[in-house]
Simulated assay, not measured.
Amino acid sequence: MTKTIFITGASRGFGKIWAEAFLKRGDRVIATVRNPDSLHELANEYPSNLLVLQLDVTDKVACVDAVAKAKTHFGAIDVLINNAGYGHMGAIEELEEQEIRTQIETNVFGLLWITQAIIPIMREQKSGHIIQLSSALGIVAFPTFGIYSASKFAVEAISESLAAEVSGFGIKVTILEPNGYLTDFNASIAQSKPIALYDDVRAALQASNKAEDWGVPEATADAVLKLVDTEKPPLRLLLGKAGFEWIKYVYAERMKTWEEWYDVSVAAHGK
């Protein structure tokens, strides 16, 4: 059955790969991008099934307008993939106020504005699937990626709450949690002005970086197609094998700590 898919941040990386995968199998795609020229060739190849919309997701009014245009053009929106976002690298002390605000405005508020605009459409349809792009770093925080992880931790909380709120309307929610992939996302990572005192921290992180931990972006397409087609999608889906090992270790350590301090926790309950 043909589906109508709304994808933000579709000019490159995951967004473009997934948009192409949907179009190749005959789905309709609304692709939002900052620069429409980035999808010129794809638009020529799929003139009937692809609607390209220029959008800055930090502009709430523009987000509402883009969703309305998509609904008018195709008549329905079956799937939302909130993919727009970027990474920022910097130790917590290094982060400038505007860097922090821009990261949160894009990765959190941008996702919220599109989600809020699309819920009424899916609620009226009594069906829909909202897919939110988080990260393995939305579960595990690495040094110098604190503000990026903070934005993805927020996506996790927002989306988990959302899933419980909209399930009665026939709307499903899935949080995608990819580990590192060899996309041009990495080249676009913004960086704070470094403080030399944190050079050793950066060096240690770089030293732990293994080539085998980085996934092949194109390999995610089949997983996303399967996710969209399943009747009972999971709330969370990891993409890649490296993230699973990180998360498994971190959760075991968290449980160990909580159990060690269990008596203190119980005493703090007061009754």
Rank of each mutant, 00 (worst) to 15 (best):
A31D: 05
A31W: 10
A31Y: 13
T32G: 10
T32R: 03
T32N: 06
T32Q: 05
V33T: 05
V33M: 03
V33K: 00
V33I: 11
V33E: 02
V33G: 01
V33F: 02
R34P: 02
R34V: 11
R34Y: 05
R34A: 06
R34S: 07
N35T: 10
P36R: 10
P36D: 07
P36T: 09
P36V: 13
P36Q: 06
P36E: 04
P36G: 14
D37G: 09
D37C: 06
D37V: 14
D37S: 13
D37Y: 12
D37Q: 07
S38Y: 00
S38N: 05
S38I: 03
L39I: 14
L39H: 07
L39V: 11
L39P: 03
L39G: 05
L39K: 04
H40E: 12
H40I: 13
E41Y: 13
E41S: 08
E41L: 10
E41H: 08
E41F: 08
L42A: 10
L42D: 04
L42S: 01
L42E: 07
A43E: 14
A43H: 12
A43M: 12
A43I: 09
N44K: 15
N44S: 13
N44G: 09
N44I: 07
N44T: 15
E45H: 08
E45V: 05
E45P: 02
E45A: 14
E45K: 09
E45R: 06
E45F: 03
Y46C: 02
Y46V: 04
Y46W: 01
Y46S: 02
P47C: 06
P47Y: 15
P47N: 12
P47F: 07
P47Q: 09
P47H: 13
S48G: 10
S48Q: 09
S48R: 10
N49F: 01
N49P: 01
N49D: 12
N49H: 07
L50K: 03
L50T: 08
L50A: 15
L50E: 05
L51D: 03
L51F: 13
V52A: 11
V52S: 07
V52W: 02
V52P: 08
L53G: 09
L53E: 07
L53P: 12
L53Q: 13
L53W: 13
L53F: 07
Q54M: 07
Q54S: 14
Q54G: 14
Q54L: 14
Q54T: 15
L55Q: 13
L55Y: 06
L55V: 08
D56S: 00
D56Y: 00
D56K: 00
D56G: 00
V57D: 02
V57G: 02
V57F: 02
V57I: 14
T58I: 11
T58K: 03
T58C: 06
T58R: 07
T58S: 11
D59K: 01
D59L: 03
D59G: 04
D59Q: 04
K60E: 11
K60D: 15
K60V: 05
V61Q: 10
V61G: 05
V61P: 00
V61Y: 04
V61E: 15
